[in-house]
Write a protein that binds this DNA or RNA. Structure first.
Lengths: 159, 159
DNA sequence: TATTGTTATACTCTATAACTATA
DNA sequence: TATAGTTATAGAGTATAACAATA
């Protein structure tokens, strides 16, 4: 591996095309177990379940969020959000509050400790891995532009 | 949701740099829930647990693999491989066989049905999403090269 | 003694269905 | 009647510790 060869065929006759290789490598890079490990450590330290640490990402900067909306962000069921927010509340990271006008809705409000924690979670998930330093500024821009292009085809996510 | 905003800065004054944006978008694209969905469907159809479908990827082309090695590939504990191979065996997708020389080791051998299934799993996980058609051949090559560069910093993974 | 795999167990992830309160 | 959240429950993911067989 790592040998730049004439692209398009290999000795087994199996053609691994450029897009496939790019895709496989993208998956490998982004599924970095280290990120999960860091998040796990954060969760352990804070006394929350790992799923709650992931959720913190969406609770970080915005105003209080309805539980239902968190479920949409996490693409999980409402009932799991109950579990997550239970964990956050038990650890003193967040609390439920009633919505001002619609009393069916509960919003999730971070405590001060929660805001700090959320910032760290955001940083863990949002910080590019060290390998990005291998790219020149120009290459980084090219990469970003390619990602924008790939992302622009995002599924319509009806509703 | 779904509102496209000016990218690069948000109302809080936080500037999101190029690498961070590239990274976040990469993660979003590669964590496509549709891939998981397809794999889930395959698992349902074959009567195996979803984790076993992921494992098929590593069992596809190679010769019989020791359970321990599958654990390393999946980065999970041996005990979970027991669960996975139980599932594969119950569904008639694979069977355990004794290693020729070291009788502590059991190797996983795919059945004919298993080989077919493994090919499909490989295809699901290895096929780039439709959005890749948005890239020109030249752009695809650039992307692949960038991924090679990023991947070259991969952790040494001793042993 | 060290290694491979299994068993028992426990915690977490996540969803479905039934339910309560509110709209 | 429809919607937000909760409860009960269950299957799946996953790890740790103790164990058996083999090296």
């Amino acid at each position: 591996m790592g040998v730049a060869r004439t692209i398009g065929a290999d000795e087994a006759g199996v053609v691994k095309d450029t897009a496939t290789e790019a895709w496989e490598r993208m998956r490998e890079i982004t599924h970095d177990p280290q990120v999960l490990g860091q998040l796990q450590a954060l969760a352990d330290e804070a006394g929350i379940i790992p799923g709650a640490a992931k959720a913190l990402r969406f609770l970080s900067t915005t105003e209080p969020m309805a539980m239902r909306r968190l479920a949409a962000n996490l693409r999980c069921d409402n009932s799991y959000v109950t579990t997550i927010v239970d964990s956050l509340e038990e650890a003193g990271v967040a609390r439920r509050e009633a919505h001002a006008t619609d009393r069916r809705i509960k919003v999730i409000v971070l405590t001060d400790a929660g805001r700090t924690l959320a910032g760290r979670a955001q940083e863990i998930l949002g910080t590019p891995p060290p390998a990005f330093e291998l790219l020149s500024p120009a290459e980084t821009e090219i990469l970003r532009d390619l990602m924008r292009k790939l992302g622009s085809a995002a599924k319509p996510t009806s509703t």
